[in-house]
Computed example of a mutant assay.
Amino acid sequence: MSGVDNQNSEWTFGQVFSAIAWVPILVEIFVIVRKGPIIGLNRRLSKGYTVVSTSASGSPPEEDRQYLKL
């Protein structure tokens, strides 16, 4: 139940739920920053896919060319 004025320190259910909804997103960002983008993003993909890096020119390295769609 919400308070009568805006001066109380009680949170409503919606405020608590919206704060908790950010937890999985912040955990994912932390894992990607800590382990790097390749490992951090690969763990969320299904087994049939993999994350590969590309060079700044847009052409992937020679060892990653097998993953390209033609």
Score class of each variant (00 low, 15 high):
residue 65 R to F: 09
residue 2 S to I: 08
residue 63 E to G: 08
residue 49 Y to Q: 02
residue 14 G to K: 06
residue 12 T to N: 07
residue 38 I to K: 04
residue 41 L to E: 03
residue 57 S to F: 02
residue 23 V to G: 10
residue 32 I to H: 02
residue 39 I to H: 12
residue 42 N to E: 07
residue 70 L to K: 15
residue 55 S to A: 12
residue 8 N to P: 00
residue 58 G to E: 00
residue 10 E to C: 04
residue 54 T to R: 04
residue 24 P to N: 09
residue 49 Y to T: 04
residue 39 I to T: 14
residue 54 T to W: 08
residue 50 T to W: 05
residue 58 G to R: 01
residue 43 R to G: 02
residue 31 V to D: 02
residue 7 Q to R: 05
residue 56 A to L: 13
residue 30 F to E: 06
residue 49 Y to F: 14
residue 38 I to H: 03
residue 11 W to P: 00
residue 17 F to W: 08
residue 7 Q to T: 15
residue 65 R to H: 14
residue 27 V to F: 10
residue 22 W to L: 13
residue 63 E to T: 10
residue 2 S to N: 13
residue 1 M to K: 08
residue 28 E to V: 07
residue 58 G to P: 01
residue 37 P to Y: 08
residue 1 M to V: 14
residue 16 V to H: 05
residue 45 L to R: 01
residue 6 N to K: 05
residue 19 A to K: 07
residue 23 V to W: 02
residue 37 P to D: 15
residue 49 Y to I: 05
residue 62 E to V: 08
residue 64 D to Q: 06
residue 44 R to I: 13
residue 48 G to L: 04
residue 1 M to S: 15
residue 16 V to R: 10
residue 57 S to N: 12
residue 14 G to P: 01
residue 61 P to W: 06
residue 41 L to C: 07
residue 29 I to H: 05
residue 59 S to F: 07
residue 40 G to W: 03
residue 4 V to Y: 10
residue 63 E to V: 13
residue 27 V to K: 08
residue 40 G to T: 03
residue 58 G to C: 00
residue 10 E to W: 06
residue 40 G to Y: 03
residue 48 G to W: 06
residue 1 M to N: 14
residue 46 S to N: 13
residue 36 G to Y: 05
residue 29 I to P: 00
residue 15 Q to T: 13
residue 50 T to Q: 08
residue 18 S to M: 06
